[in-house]
Design a protein around this nucleic acid. Structure first.
Lengths: 209, 209
DNA sequence: GACAAACTGAACGCAGCCGTTCAATTAAAC
DNA sequence: GTTTAATTGAACGGCTGCGTTCAGTTTGTC
């Protein structure tokens, strides 16, 4: 087999055009949904002919998958937690909670989750790709942080994975639900929820003196 | 004005047909989504002609609203909590958590939430109708339970609304997310999550002796 | 420079579906 | 029995959109 078969005679596929197509597809798919998006409009927005879209992706589903992959890729970088901070655990939890909330409550993210969840009903692997790129990564990073804090004695967390879920879930609370279903934002309430989550968490997992 | 104007001459609208239409519409809309559902198939499934559907509902959006209203109506009964049980608070919390989980993790409910969230992007009032019929009612009922337990001294809950959110959110945890995005079910994990939620909650809100 | 393949613009076939119209039938109210 | 209106089945117009085809042009590789 020729190595990855990238060398062929003739004009190669234009990767800049490909990127433009996927970008336009993401805009359309996650704003309007899969069914309501049209290849013709995506091609026009990308400044490309419809035939080129089919030449690159074959059909609408493959283009959708590429758009999902692109968004998931954008997500993957966002879940690192600094293990060696000088601040105390309480303050760091507060910061982490606020960062998570800021990341998740962006309208684009809310909208993206809505669309992915809907398409998951027809194509489960779409949902799993999202889970692995986003929530599970986040839980793993935060769980590692908690395990680290356990070894240093700053916290006492017997089950870091489950504790991570508890904290993240409390930070999201009903605000997550309300955003997903179109309720107007309430930043004060969101902030309060995070503070109380830290309170409860510290009360439960502070090391026994 | 004639009282509700129900009495007119001629043949009245067939309410049984109406019900069959809405039932078929619910099946289609929440299984396939609004765009992917066709009036023709809904009419066929309801054993009714397409003209009758238009005669009852006018257009597709109105039929969708009727289907949402029907599902919300079915939800409204499910959120009562018995205030006068003899069991201790811990056991009752466990039962409540398990009931909530059983109600929310049904595949039809997961699917319904997916579709409503997606349609909320286009029609916010759809999402708000759902919020009011479901989650907010549930929070209100559980919050009232906590407030009651506070007055009897079984718990010490300064902010019942927020505490209700914390408990419900921990019970849902990541299981909610995983279900929505198509991960296979994990009943053991779900059960553990609820038990640990009760643990944390009792630790935080047990009355000071 | 020759060749191969990507790109374009336009047109096409095909399918699905919304919402309407119409004549004929059925069923309830008076 | 008469009247009023719901129901039906079929057909239609109009639109949108997927995916294909084709001739012609551009842009790379050999």
């Amino acid at each position: 087999m020729a190595e990855t078969a990238t060398k062929r005679a003739g004009r190669p596929l234009d990767t800049a055009k490909r990127d433009a197509i996927v970008a336009a597809a993401s805009d359309a798919f996650f704003e309007l949904g899969f069914a309501a998006s049209s290849i013709e409009k995506i091609a026009a927005d990308a400044g490309v002919s419809k035939v080129t879209v089919y030449n690159h992706f074959g059909d609408k589903s493959a283009l959708f998958s590429a758009a999902v992959e692109r968004e998931c890729e954008k997500m993957r970088g966002h879940f690192s937690i600094d293990m060696s901070s000088s601040a105390n655990v309480r303050d760091r939890l507060l910061t982490i909670g606020q960062s998570m909330h800021a990341f998740l409550s962006r309208p684009e993210m809310v909208q993206f989750e809505r669309r992915i969840a809907a398409e998951t009903a027809d194509e489960p692997q779409i949902g799993l790709a999202f889970l692995n790129a986003g929530p599970r990564r986040m839980r793993a990073a935060f769980s590692a942080f908690l395990a680290h804090a356990d070894t240093t004695g700053e916290l006492s967390v017997p089950d870091p994975d489950l504790a991570a879920e508890q904290f993240a879930s409390m930070c999201k609370g009903f605000g997550d639900l309300e955003r997903r279903f179109g309720a107007p934002p309430d930043p004060d309430r969101d902030a309060l929820r995070i503070e109380r989550a830290v309170d409860l968490f510290m009360q439960a997992y502070a090391p026994a003196k």
